[in-house]
């Protein structure tokens, strides 16, 4: 594992000779795998939700995946492997390479407030895409935590007997369903902002795709 990791890191450094690499290759690959996995998980999850809604609404079948409950479950429990394996590798790489520490920390309330103000008055600089502003640090750290919680709450819904201590940690099976739903809603909220900003700053889309 560490050999693989260092190879990838070294490769990235080699490519820096020409232009500065903003996003290393492992981040780019895992980002897009994650994008596919999240898309499949959310749209199949909506169809599963529809079988027994928690609230007084259902998702239109035009935006759900799977066609009916059994199909949605097949998609959900297939895409979960993509999400989990990719997610675990991402966490391992992020911790081992020091990316999380370097890119996402520190986060201070005053800096978040200052950068939020700057963003809302359109004064926030995007000149150096390799450095995240405090709002980005907060959102990216937050969404990693949400990602961990949505997987753990999902596992506790899937296996309330075999993983009953995990389920109990979430307050039981029924509460875990609400936690799972709330995390989905948080990810959807994040995606609205994330995608909108990527479209506003197209070079960030370029950086996450080809690295530069």
């Amino acid at each position: 594992m560490s050999t693989v990791m260092s190879t990838i890191v070294v490769n990235d450094e080699h490519t820096t000779r020409g232009a500065k690499v903003i996003q290393p290759r492992w981040v780019r690959v895992m980002h897009w795998i994650n994008a596919v996995a999240i898309g499949l998980m959310i749209t199949s999850g909506w169809e599963i939700y529809n079988a027994s809604p928690l609230f007084r609404f259902s998702f239109s079948s035009r935006i759900t995946l799977g066609g009916w409950l059994a199909g949605a479950l097949l998609w959900h429990f297939a895409a979960m492997w993509l999400l989990m394996v990719n997610g675990l590798l991402y966490l391992a790489f992020g911790l081992a390479t020091g990316r999380f520490r370097k890119k996402l920390l520190p986060i201070t309330p005053s800096a978040v407030i200052a950068d939020t103000k700057a963003a809302l008055t359109l004064k926030l600089s995007h000149d150096d895409l390799s450095r995240y502003n405090s709002v980005q640090k907060l959102l990216y750290s937050g969404i990693i935590i949400v990602g961990i919680v949505i997987v753990l709450s999902g596992l506790s819904i899937w296996k309330p007997v075999q993983l009953q201590y995990l389920t109990a940690l979430f307050g039981g099976y029924d509460v875990a369903r609400y936690v799972h739903f709330a995390c989905m809603a948080a990810i959807c909220g994040f995606l609205v902002v994330h995608v909108a900003l990527a479209l506003l700053v197209p070079k960030s889309l370029r950086a996450i795709t080809i690295g530069r």
Binding site: V36, G39, L40, T43, S61, T64, L65, G66, G67, W68, A70, G71, A72, L74, W75, A79
Partner: peptide
């Protein structure tokens, strides 16, 4: 086989 009907188009992407 209903389940696959609307899965086919998105399945294409994966």
């Amino acid at each position: 086989r209903r389940f696959i009907a609307s899965g086919a188009s998105l399945g294409a992407l994966t």
